[in-house]
Write a protein that binds this DNA or RNA. Structure first.
Lengths: 258, 258
DNA sequence: GTATGCATCTCGGGA
DNA sequence: TCCCGAGGTGCATAC
């Protein structure tokens, strides 16, 4: 990429443009910069080539050349983003009062600045969440146990919501905590605290079952130590993945040309 | 923004360029697209103006006009990103074998394509993490209690690591769980598990203290019910925030001109 | 490689 | 508004 010298007058013009377009359009700046964040944590980012992305809601995202997570960012809801020239260099400065967080990005050089006029009213639709899995288990209780009869979903306790409640064939109460991913020790603890709620507060002895994709030995230890059950449910078989086969749903099913 | 017609020959040239530069440079495409993700979850994104950002490590990020989080993405480590022309439209398709996840982005129109040659060897340095706070409390135990004497940091139990262990002036054992953020019910239960471990397995009665930024009434209820202590530690006073005052550390302290 | 827990977690839903 | 838990959590670190 050609690196044009950033002449002062050119920079001044850019700043005016940026201030003018802020909150109306997406702004992408590409250049060499350093950054300092101060708030919930402090961080310093030495000089390097980055992409700064400012959205219409003034979310500010500074990306490096690797990984999904940005190097630095500022959430929307911060005050106005300041674009200034200091020492002939572009400085982008934001302050988020709610969390008292400042982000300061100093551009040594700007290689390219682009202002996009984006229109997007669409929103992402999702299928296959943990709550979908709970729903499915509620209506297909035999997956949990052939004698399991669910009685409630999203049952509230003072310790939080539990996913499924039911009984076995003898009427003994069962509670189920559902995780789509692999179980963590925290998940086992979560289930334990629901069981404790019933035993200590409601004076009911319940069987706790943790449903998850997989169980590590440490998690199994916690479960066994607390007399809780583990049930491996491969949700991929419940929500058949299209990944391995020819997609059954293609974009053509959705796309409408104007 | 001027919306140039995407002529087939032009698109073909873009595809060649994209394939050529993949993994060598950052790619930014701006246009109108739909997207389908299939893997850990299924999602469909209707048509709208988006920014597609492909990093050198083949991380792929599709951003909408709001919020920090991308609408769709693919982590690095996926197979080669496919850029194809289908029905005279650019299709970006990736498959990540590890998690069997596909992402397909179909561009209805491309407004701008940019290829950046980024050089960034610098890495972010961070100060003020939870572990920094634990370290600080270990060396300044009077913050927890004037009679607290720490004996261990990162002490392992079968239920997980606890942050601090120590004794009071009478030699009674104390364990401390440290959170930098506000305490959650799960935090209180985690501490309870640790206390139970000592009482049930090691047959030692210990006092549990939860250190956090703030405590909700629900969390306080759980703590009180289990005879656990809450200690509000304003870490902002420990790692003085520069947010409210004139920054003491400015970029000038770091920046070295080549 | 897997497992574990932090994160400037972000985000959405519910009270 | 705050509180709470899910997340395609991502990510580093410990094993």
């Amino acid at each position: 990429m050609k690196r044009t010298k950033n002449l002062p007058e050119k920079q001044q013009k850019l700043v005016e443009k940026l201030l003018d377009e802020a909150c109306k359009k997406m702004i992408v700046l590409f250049g060499s910069c350093t950054a300092i964040f101060d708030g919930r944590i402090k961080s310093f980012l030495p000089k390097g080539d980055r992409m700064l992305f400012v959205k219409k809601d003034e979310t500010l995202i500074l990306h490096g050349s690797k990984g999904l997570k940005p190097l630095n960012w500022q959430l929307s809801g911060a005050g106005k983003i300041n674009y200034l020239i200091e020492d002939e260099k572009l400085v982008v400065r934001t302050y988020r009062p709610k969390t008292k967080e400042t982000l300061e990005i100093l551009f040594d050089e700007i290689y390219q600045a682009t202002i996009y006029d984006a229109h997007d009213s669409a929103s992402l639709s999702i299928y296959g969440s943990e709550s979908d899995l709970s729903d499915y288990l509620f209506s297909h209780p035999e997956i949990i146990d052939k004698n399991f009869q669910p009685t409630a979903r999203e049952f509230e306790t003072p310790f939080g919501f539990l996913d499924l409640r039911g009984v076995d064939k003898s009427g003994n109460p069962i509670i189920v905590e559902v995780k789509k991913r692999g179980a963590t020790p925290a998940d086992a603890h979560q289930l334990k605290r629901y069981v404790e709620y019933f035993e200590e507060v409601e004076k009911i002895k319940v069987q706790g079952i943790l449903v998850a994709q997989s169980f590590s030995s440490k998690v199994m230890n916690v479960l066994r130590a607390n007399n809780l059950e583990a049930l491996e449910v491969p949700w991929q078989e419940i929500f058949p993945s299209l990944a391995n086969e020819k997609p059954k749903v293609t974009m053509d099913d959705y796309i409408k040309d104007d």
